[in-house]
Design a protein around this nucleic acid. Sequence first.
DNA 1: CGGTGGATTCTCT
DNA 2: GAGAATCCACCGT
Length: 162
Amino acid sequence: MFRIIDSRFFVISAVELARKLLGKILVRNINGQLIKVKIAAALNNRGGCAYVYLIYGMYYCFNIASSIKGDPQGVLIRAAEPLDHHTIPVISLHDEKKKFHYYTNGPGKLCRALNIDISLNHIDLTTSNLIYLEDAPDLSQEEIVINKRVNIDYAGADKDRL
DNA sequence: CGGTGGATTCTCT
DNA sequence: GAGAATCCACCGT
């Protein structure tokens, strides 16, 4: 698959971009070690133009901005499927003895697995060697299921929002 | 300049 | 189901 280097790919609405990102390959380069994951869940994000947010002091959320300058939109990547290995081992923050084989099924866990931190904020996905996207066939309409956010039974009234 | 809360996740009850 | 872990942007004083 080829890397996406055409910035026009992102010059669309966040809703469209979220749909196109599904199935694409997110590549993270950590000191030469490539980790590839397939984007499996994205979320239309409301406003904001940052790429990486620190949340609750412990976890990061990885966003991909869309549209054009002056019209801030973005897509929050909520989950992905590891490709290189079945799982990406990440040591538990709470108990280092427990080596959880974390899946990337949540925004915070996704960023932990890929070593995404604030240093990637404002990075350009079309020019950076640290993290970028590889092209992949768009999923068919039938394969895209618009559903509620994953793993959010804690969210109360907000969980019914898309 | 101190207080507060948030786009999360894990652990224990 | 609730609390904790833990950083910083933002707000009020």
